[in-house]
């Protein structure tokens, strides 16, 4: 459980620094126990900051999302830092962006939160169809206590957490400037259970599984927009010449888009599950990302988002990389 006062204090301290523009964190949303990203430009605005098990958003997208409007004649660019409240995976996303030189370490001030897992709103919603009436959700040791219809419900954590959170190996932010609370000692080991389920299917079953999901894709590209690591100025799918993926929505193009998205995140994805959370058509995108993460771990012994100095997976090589498949 994160100490509320400590968090607000840290944010206040950060936002009152002269070299900080604003701090991005979480505040209470508009209904139920919904949480929404919040921006504090002053210490008064920091009062509303919270951290609950529903703080799912990966705020690492915001520094790259900031729009720089054209400057006037005598205007100077505002180069002040942006403060971010980061969980383990969010911090890893920042590390990855820094590693790729998308951001400089000194561009951001990180308020780290050792994270014990966040609730998947989709799981919560399917459990409580009248989700908006939930007023409070609290974390106990191995369960969540949910106040619903003036009753307290206790649900084991695994039933509500994101699949990626259950066996998260990196609950602590690898980089931070201020840490709220103490680092968690974690002995979790990623088991890739869902990936293994799909892997064990036959080739025909695999395609049947994915065909059904990709057929449904409406190509809104919300998965891309929510991803902290999809920060290209122009995405390949938006390019008109060459047109990598056609705009018409059908199985072939949808699959091409999903292959492309997964490949572009190979060795970069930190597994925060944001893509899956925002997908309006419930496509299990994490499985694709986790599959590549697993293989990359096995083949190249590479884990993204751990060190700022590491070189990107696809920008490096070893002369003795495995090549059994090459004729």
């Amino acid at each position: 459980m994160v100490n509320q006062e400590q968090l607000v204090d840290a944010v206040k301290k950060t936002v009152s620094r002269e070299d900080v523009k604003y701090v991005v964190g979480y505040e209470k949303g508009t209904y139920g126990c919904e949480v929404t990203p919040s921006f504090a430009h002053s210490s008064e605005e920091a009062e509303k900051f919270i951290f609950t098990p529903l703080c799912v958003h990966n705020l690492a997208i915001y520094p790259k999302l900031e729009e720089k409007l054209p400057l006037g004649r005598d205007e100077k660019e505002d180069t002040r830092k942006i403060g971010l409240v980061v969980k383990g995976c969010d911090s890893r996303a920042v590390v990855q962006i820094i590693q790729e030189k998308g951001l400089k370490r000194e561009d951001v001030v990180l308020i780290g939160i050792p994270c014990t897992g966040v609730v998947n709103p989709k799981k919560l919603k399917s459990r409580y169809p009248n989700y908006a009436e939930i007023v409070e959700i609290e974390e106990k040791d191995s369960s969540f206590s949910i106040k619903f219809n003036e009753e307290n419900h206790t649900i084991p954590k695994e039933e509500l957490l994101f699949d990626a959170c259950i066996n998260c190996e990196y609950p602590n932010p690898p980089i931070y400037d201020i840490l709220i609370g103490e680092e968690i000692k974690s002995t979790n080991k990623e088991t890739y259970e869902k990936v293994k389920v799909v892997e064990s299917k036959s080739q025909k079953e695999k395609w049947a599984y994915w065909e059904e999901h990709f057929q449904r894709c409406i190509r809104c590209y919300a998965c891309r927009d929510a991803c902290p690591l999809c920060y290209c100025k122009e995405c390949m799918v938006d390019q008109l010449d060459p047109r990598w993926v056609r705009r018409s929505v059908n199985l072939s193009e949808n699959t091409a888009w999903n292959i492309m998205r997964a490949l572009h995140l190979a060795g970069r994805c930190v597994g925060c599950s944001e893509c899956e959370r925002v997908c309006p058509m419930d496509i299990p995108l994490t499985e694709l990302n986790k599959k590549l993460e697993k293989n990359i771990m096995e083949i190249y012994d590479y884990i993204p988002g751990i060190s700022e100095e590491a070189k990107p997976l696809l920008g490096t090589f070893k002369p003795d990389d495995p090549e059994e498949f090459i004729l």
Binding site: P37, S38, L65, I218, C220, A222, D225, A226, V278, P280
Partner: peptide, 10 residues
């Protein structure tokens, strides 16, 4: 806050 995903419009 908006991430420009367009889900609302679709």
């Amino acid at each position: 806050k908006c991430i420009g995903c367009g889900t609302c419009t679709f």
